[in-house]
Write a protein that binds this DNA or RNA. Structure first.
Lengths: 205, 205
DNA sequence: TTTTGACCATTCAAATAAAAAAGTCAAAAA
DNA sequence: TTTTTGACTTTTTTATTTGAATGGTCAAAA
């Protein structure tokens, strides 16, 4: 009997291989055979660790989104100025978006995958956690009398919708592979609007 | 020889018929035959007034966007409070978006059509004019010392991008025919964020 | 317990055929 | 001369087929 720890590390290896393929080409364009070949293993062996492609995708999504949420959390715990850290989160968002753009985990371009209830609920959960983190930060800003007496939940939702909307503008001018400049332009716009937004909810005494 | 005025009124009749079809079903789903039949005329007769479908579409787009720009202009000339009129513009935008949603003049869903250079430049011109109108209003707000010393052009662009982005969120949850609630939710979000945005650029003495 | 070659079933994409729509023209009607 | 039309051609779109690629299984070996 092999150790659980070795099985886990093999799973980890597969995940990393899958992420490499997924994020260079897309999920749709990478085959299970390619992932197996990259790792010099057979396809059935892959299926020994992951029952099907969907569960592999979900595991990948879980890993990546955990990394993302951890990065935000890290920023919030290590920061003092509330509004500065909110701007930093925008940068973190964009780093991740750029890095894992090809996965199209955000938009519904991965049509077929997104019919899967598990993936849907995973992403819903991530969005919820993300929202909770940002909301906590905004609530803290309110507590510090930095912000006006706003409805924290609603304001947070607006803030996030605004960012997402600006993000979508990138996909709207749908070149199959969006140029690097497009990402940077989006980031820039998001930062500018966020600054105005934060000014808009800032207390002015 | 028939009068020019009669020819023009016939063109107008055709335009109205086309708009009716286009906005109930989409541009793609309405055929030249359907438009002709609606008006009890033959297809070749239609082609006597419009050389091809594209030029008919462009004429329709021109008519509608003129109506839109006129509505904004009207609002701006008849208003006194700058920020109030900016919020009203959001409502006007949404009325038009809802009314002519099926035309998909905004987004690039009308793929084929949008390869047409004439239509592209028309829409670019409309966007430019729209931007100029809003910019004038924001500039007026600045002149009245209502707003901070901001870069009017950049701020206007951000304001519009923010609205467009929020608009796109509607299409992101792409149900083929978006529910009426979705429109209203978008309008509501746009108004809320716009209020915060305007607070953000407002002078606070 | 982990790994694999050989295999099946399903899905996807290229090719093709069928249908529909865009667009033309010569001639008639106004 | 301007406007209108029936009959026709060409182009585009849609449906169908078919062959290859891919996801997924299994019995057997390591």
């Amino acid at each position: 009997m092999n150790s659980k720890i070795e099985t886990d590390s093999k799973r980890e290896l597969i995940l990393e291989g899958a992420i490499r393929r997924f994020s260079h080409f897309s999920i749709q364009k990478t085959t299970m055979n390619e992932i197996a070949d990259d790792l010099s293993m057979s396809k059935p062996n892959l299926y020994y660790y992951f029952p099907d492609k969907t569960s592999l995708v979900i595991a990948v999504a879980e890993k990546i989104t955990d990394e993302y949420l951890a990065a935000i959390d890290e920023e919030f715990t290590n920061s003092d100025a509330v509004d500065e850290s909110l701007l930093k989160v925008i940068i973190i968002r964009n780093v991740f978006f750029k890095k894992y753009y090809m996965l199209h985990i955000n938009d519904g371009q991965t049509e077929a995958l997104f019919k899967d209830e598990n993936l849907r609920s995973l992403m819903a959960g991530v969005k919820e956690k993300e929202l909770a983190l940002i909301a906590a930060q905004i609530r803290e800003g309110k507590r510090q009398n930095l912000f006006k007496t706003i409805d924290v939940e609603k304001t947070t939702a607006l803030f996030m919708d605004m960012l997402t909307g600006l993000q979508l503008c990138i996909g709207a001018m749908k070149s199959p592979v969006p140029a690097a400049e497009a990402f940077d332009e989006t980031l820039h716009k998001q930062l500018e609007v966020a600054r105005i937004f934060l000014d808009g909810i800032r207390r002015n005494d």
